[in-house]
Protein backbone atom coordinates (compact mmCIF):
# COMPACT_ATOMS: atom_id res chain seq x y z
CA UNK A 1 0.00 0.00 0.00
CA UNK A 2 2.87 2.35 0.56
CA UNK A 3 6.04 3.09 -1.22
CA UNK A 4 9.26 4.23 0.31
CA UNK A 5 10.95 7.04 -1.45
CA UNK A 6 14.48 7.94 -0.86
CA UNK A 7 14.42 11.66 -1.37
CA UNK A 8 17.55 13.28 -2.67
CA UNK A 9 18.99 14.03 0.73
CA UNK A 10 20.47 11.70 3.23
CA UNK A 11 18.33 10.38 6.09
CA UNK A 12 15.19 11.96 4.73
CA UNK A 13 13.47 8.68 4.17
CA UNK A 14 9.74 9.17 4.26
CA UNK A 15 6.78 7.00 3.56
CA UNK A 16 4.53 8.42 0.96
CA UNK A 17 1.01 7.13 1.32
CA UNK A 18 -0.62 6.59 -2.04
CA UNK A 19 -3.94 8.09 -3.14
CA UNK A 20 -5.92 4.81 -3.13
CA UNK A 21 -5.34 4.58 0.61
CA UNK A 22 -6.56 8.12 1.11
CA UNK A 23 -9.57 7.44 -1.04
CA UNK A 24 -10.44 4.31 0.90
CA UNK A 25 -10.17 6.13 4.21
CA UNK A 26 -12.23 8.99 2.85
CA UNK A 27 -15.07 6.66 1.93
CA UNK A 28 -14.83 4.79 5.19
CA UNK A 29 -15.20 8.08 7.02
CA UNK A 30 -18.24 9.06 4.96
CA UNK A 31 -19.90 5.70 5.59
CA UNK A 32 -19.22 5.95 9.31
CA UNK A 33 -20.69 9.46 9.36
CA UNK A 34 -23.85 8.22 7.71
CA UNK A 35 -23.94 5.28 10.10
CA UNK A 36 -23.62 7.37 13.24
CA UNK A 37 -26.31 9.79 12.09
CA UNK A 38 -28.60 6.89 11.21
CA UNK A 39 -28.13 5.07 14.49
CA UNK A 40 -28.90 8.19 16.47
CA UNK A 41 -32.51 7.94 15.28
CA UNK A 42 -32.95 4.53 16.88
CA UNK A 43 -33.64 4.40 20.60
CA UNK A 44 -30.93 2.26 22.21
CA UNK A 45 -30.94 3.80 25.68
CA UNK A 46 -27.48 4.48 27.03
CA UNK A 47 -25.97 2.66 24.08
CA UNK A 48 -26.76 5.60 21.80
CA UNK A 49 -24.04 7.60 23.45
CA UNK A 50 -21.68 4.65 23.66
CA UNK A 51 -22.03 3.80 19.99
CA UNK A 52 -21.76 7.43 18.90
CA UNK A 53 -18.52 7.79 20.83
CA UNK A 54 -17.18 4.47 19.61
CA UNK A 55 -17.79 5.47 16.00
CA UNK A 56 -16.20 8.87 16.63
CA UNK A 57 -13.14 7.17 18.12
CA UNK A 58 -12.93 4.85 15.15
CA UNK A 59 -13.13 7.76 12.72
CA UNK A 60 -10.54 9.72 14.64
CA UNK A 61 -8.21 6.72 14.67
CA UNK A 62 -8.51 6.36 10.91
CA UNK A 63 -7.61 10.02 10.46
CA UNK A 64 -4.69 9.80 12.86
CA UNK A 65 -3.34 6.55 11.50
CA UNK A 66 -3.62 7.25 7.79
CA UNK A 67 -4.24 10.90 7.00
CA UNK A 68 -1.75 11.87 9.67
CA UNK A 69 0.58 8.99 8.85
CA UNK A 70 0.98 7.73 12.39
CA UNK A 71 0.60 4.18 11.12
CA UNK A 72 3.87 4.65 9.24
CA UNK A 73 5.62 6.86 11.78
CA UNK A 74 8.35 6.33 14.31
CA UNK A 75 7.69 5.00 17.77
CA UNK A 76 8.33 8.45 19.16
CA UNK A 77 5.38 9.94 17.29
CA UNK A 78 3.16 7.03 18.27
CA UNK A 79 4.10 7.61 21.88
CA UNK A 80 3.43 11.32 21.52
CA UNK A 81 -0.12 10.66 20.43
CA UNK A 82 -0.54 8.19 23.26
CA UNK A 83 0.75 10.74 25.76
CA UNK A 84 -1.87 13.25 24.61
CA UNK A 85 -4.68 10.75 24.99
CA UNK A 86 -3.37 9.61 28.34
CA UNK A 87 -3.27 13.10 29.81
CA UNK A 88 -6.69 13.91 28.44
CA UNK A 89 -8.03 10.75 30.09
CA UNK A 90 -6.36 11.78 33.35
CA UNK A 91 -8.12 15.11 33.25
CA UNK A 92 -11.48 13.48 32.63
CA UNK A 93 -11.20 10.48 34.91
CA UNK A 94 -9.69 12.15 37.95
CA UNK A 95 -12.19 14.98 37.72
CA UNK A 96 -14.91 12.38 37.53
CA UNK A 97 -13.78 10.74 40.78
CA UNK A 98 -15.13 13.86 42.41
CA UNK A 99 -18.33 14.28 40.42
CA UNK A 100 -19.35 10.65 40.54
CA UNK A 101 -18.91 10.25 44.26
CA UNK A 102 -20.10 13.62 45.50
CA UNK A 103 -23.53 12.10 45.87
CA UNK A 104 -23.40 8.44 45.02
CA UNK A 105 -25.79 7.40 42.29
CA UNK A 106 -26.95 10.92 41.53
CA UNK A 107 -24.55 11.62 38.71
Amino acid sequence: MTEKTQSTHQDAEVHVVKPPVYLAIFFALLVLTALTTGISFIDLGVFNAVIALAIACLKASLVVLFFMHIHYSSRLLKLTVAAGLFTFMLLISLTMTDYISRAWGMF
Binding site: T36, T37, S40, F41, D43, N48, A52, A56
Partner: peptide, 14 residues
Amino acid sequence: WIFLFPLLYLISRY
Protein backbone atom coordinates in the same frame (compact mmCIF):
# COMPACT_ATOMS: atom_id res chain seq x y z
CA TRP B 1 -15.21 18.08 14.70
CA ILE B 2 -15.55 14.32 14.43
CA PHE B 3 -16.14 14.36 18.18
CA LEU B 4 -18.16 17.56 18.32
CA PHE B 5 -20.68 16.27 15.81
CA PRO B 6 -22.04 13.31 17.76
CA LEU B 7 -21.67 15.09 21.09
CA LEU B 8 -23.60 18.18 20.07
CA TYR B 9 -25.94 17.08 17.30
CA LEU B 10 -26.78 13.49 18.00
CA ILE B 11 -28.17 13.40 21.54
CA SER B 12 -31.34 11.31 21.54
CA ARG B 13 -32.36 12.21 18.02
CA TYR B 14 -35.03 9.52 18.02
